[in-house]
Amino acid sequence: MEKFVTLKGLVAPLDRPNVDTDAIIPKQFLKSIKRSGFGPNLFDEWRYLDRGEPGVDNHHRPLNPDFVLNQARYQGAQVLLARDNFGCGSSREHAPWALEDYGFRCIIAPSFADIFYNNCFKNGILPIVLAATVVDQLFAETAATEGYALEVDLPRQVVTTPGGDTFPFEVDEFRKHCLLNGLDDIGLTLQHVDEIKAFEEKHRAASPWLFRNADPRATGS
């Protein structure tokens, strides 16, 4: 996973609430057995005028000129500004894979859906919750100023606007630690192998029915 420490990134605004993961990456692209290559199909149904399918060369597809990410001023954006309940719906991690592959490293919204929020941290994306009034201000400033960029400082947990406003944000210590260092949390968990084994033994003794072999054929039962 790529580290996230600080970022100064162009902001793209996506002004609608309840953006679901079906919209972020439509289902036909979930058939891939890879983790990469989803960026060209990010927001596919809003971004293109035709219907996308896996394996199609996206360079030759007609773009929807009204969709915000297709506007010249937002090319190269790394910060996505969004509304309430961003990432709701399906748990597909293909959503953060697509956002990251497109180039977004940070998403700012008044609220996120839980599973999506969690999935972001596994993929080097920092989701930041800011108050709705602050997000309103950022939307207004983004619209008013071409090239509007925000500075995101994860060690200090603060977002700074071009005008010098600063907005602190919350992030769990463990998640921050993993993002700052680009750590694989499976490796970290496996540092506690002995504790897991000890728990498992106790758990098995207390509730042996939870440990029946999952295949009745194998046990002959």
């Binding site: 748990s91 991690e93 969690n118 999935n119 499976i186």
Partner: peptide, 13 residues
């Protein structure tokens, strides 16, 4: 529900 990274995490740990 969990994401794919967590599917891997549960498989491994």
């Amino acid at each position: 529900g969990i994401g794919t990274s967590e599917v891997e995490h549960v498989l491994a740990t």
